[in-house]
């Protein structure tokens, strides 16, 4: 049994222009001690997925369908009080922006101690000792003195370390890291990634790493889930994703990346814009931007299995598609117009 299983998750948000499905029919699972990378563009639903697991969806959002099984129990059936016991204790989260996700008027020590006091029932003094231990673990110098400092007295990299210390203080079984290094400089990013890898080896937690940086994924993840338009379009081991991508979107992402180890030739961008969640294409969400688009792509696409856990949602590998020629770029319906109509909705911060 997997540690965390997500089944057919659908999360919708009410907006002024109508209801959008930020996540629509997503399923995946995470094994203990493994790292799953979730990649995708802004608006692809990756952050909403993590917030759905934590049951932290904003007021205008709703989990309409699906199951989120943690150790076999459905988190969607839990009461808010039960969820509060799970959050931070069993499933912890690191947010992208360490400046806004720490409380500016509480000392670092109080913030870390709060979690262990609530979840592990430690006394105030023990909780502070535990906080020192955690801060030393994430290599904050002079940890004991720094307990009394406020978040603004720390640099960005240090704040992110504090967040990690806080998230790991109750030895969570699952750690969700939502763009943990995006706001940081590369040399600090390298420190944080090394730290997360080390923590995982020590504590054996499963990590869900949400990022748009494929470099970070290559470095840390065993498995990769690629999201587009609110659903998974490809899932495989990191090796397979980078060496044998099946879905044209994944291929496009890899080609559009300038690489440090390959001298600069012309980049191959993915033309067009990410889909408007209010007006999703009838079939494959990526079809309007896809260079292999065929007539069949306007039908709903199923997942195709390529063995060893590698799946992709694409008609290129469908027998019925044989003989269908890609629609040439010239004959394609204009994408510019519909794309311009509206920028993709920003559903999360």
């Amino acid at each position: 049994m997997a540690l965390l299983e997500v089944h057919d998750l659908k999360t919708t948000f009410k907006t002024e222009d109508g209801t959008v499905a930020a996540v629509n029919g997503l399923s995946f699972s995470v094994e203990p001690g493994s790292t799953l990378g979730i990649v995708g563009e802004s608006g692809s639903g990756k952050s909403v997925t993590s917030l759905s697991i934590m049951r932290l969806i904003a007021q205008n959002g709703r989990i309409e369908r699906g199951k989120i099984l943690f150790k076999g129990e459905n988190l969607l059936d839990k009461s808010e009080a039960e969820m509060r016991k799970i959050r931070g204790r069993d499933i912890a989260m690191i947010f992208q922006d360490p400046m806004t996700s720490l409380n500016p008027v509480l000392t670092i020590g109080e913030q870390i101690a709060e979690a262990t006091r609530l979840h592990l029932g430690l006394s105030h003094k023990d909780a502070l000792d535990k906080a020192v231990e955690m801060l030393e673990l994430v290599r904050i110098p002079l940890a004991r003195q720094r307990l009394k400092d406020y978040p603004h007295q720390f640099s960005g990299g240090m704040r992110q370390r504090v967040m990690i210390a806080m998230a790991l203080s109750c030895d969570p079984a699952v750690l969700i890291a939502d763009e943990p290094t995006t706001a940081l400089d590369v040399t600090i990013q390298a420190q944080i990634i090394e730290l997360m890898n080390e923590m995982q080896q020590r504590l054996g937690s499963a990590i869900i790493l949400i990022t748009h940086d494929l470099g970070v994924v290559a470095e840390t993840c065993e498995n990769v889930l690629v999201m587009y338009g609110g659903n998974m379009v490809e899932y495989a081991t990191a090796q397979e994703i980078f060496e044998q991508p099946k879905m044209p979107y994944t291929m496009g992402l890899l080609e559009s990346l300038p690489r440090l180890d390959q001298a600069g030739s012309r980049l191959v961008p993915i033309e067009g814009q990410p889909p408007n969640l209010l007006r999703m294409p009838p079939g494959c969400a990526f079809a309007p931007r896809c260079r292999y688009r065929m007539p069949i792509c306007d039908e709903p696409v199923a997942l195709y299995d390529f063995g060893a856990g590698h799946v992709a949602r694409c008609f290129l590998y469908e027998a019925r598609a044989e003989g269908q020629k890609p629609i040439e770029a010239e004959n394609r319906p204009a994408i510019a117009d519909s794309a311009v109509a509206q920028a993709p909705q920003r559903l999360t911060k």
Partner: peptide
């Protein structure tokens, strides 16, 4: 050198062979 070595390369094969220089502290 440190700055260049800190950049993750989107290729798990290359990543594993690479030796990273990790700087201590902040700017």
């Amino acid at each position: 050198q440190a700055l260049l070595s800190a950049i993750p390369i989107p290729d798990p094969g290359v990543e594993r062979r690479k030796k990273r220089i990790i700087l201590s502290g902040d700017i």
